[in-house]
């Protein structure tokens, strides 16, 4: 993690950080990288990639449609809504 990577990530995530926060984050990742370097010496060749910590697999449901929520209820907490839509500040490329 360096200033350039952090700048790119904050841009992609639309975050604004103070200079002090930036320094904190960079220092934090520097410590993590040391930890990762220590782990990297372990041979993990035959270890399977872990996707989930819980031993739960194949949670699926049948393809049946239902509409238990109303649009009005879902939009009741929205900062702005109208004509059936959520409204957000204009985004056009």
């Amino acid at each position: 993690m360096n200033h350039e990577t952090l700048r790119r990530l904050t841009l992609l995530n639309q975050l604004s950080l103070t200079d002090a926060q930036k320094e904190d984050i960079i220092a934090f990742f520097a410590r993590q990288e040391q930890g990762l370097a220590a782990l990297n010496v372990v041979d993990t060749e035959s270890v399977e990639r872990m996707v989930h910590v819980m031993p739960i697999l194949t949670v699926v449901r049948e393809d049946v449609a239902a509409q238990p929520f109303t649009r009005e209820a879902l939009q009741s907490g929205a900062p702005d809504a109208g004509e059936g839509y959520w409204r957000v500040p204009r985004v056009v490329e």
């Binding site: 699926v60 449901r61 049946v64 509409q67 238990p68 929520f69 879902l74 004509e83 059936g84 959520w86």
Partner: peptide, 29 residues
């Protein structure tokens, strides 16, 4: 479980999961 059919009025096929409300968990069809 929202309908996947084409052609409904705006936001008639929505629920807390597909409009991204916090805490909602996806279940695969």
């Amino acid at each position: 479980s929202c309908s996947a059919k084409f052609g409904a009025g705006p936001n008639e096929h929505v629920c807390p999961a597909c409009c991204g409300m916090p805490g909602m968990l996806p279940v695969v069809n």
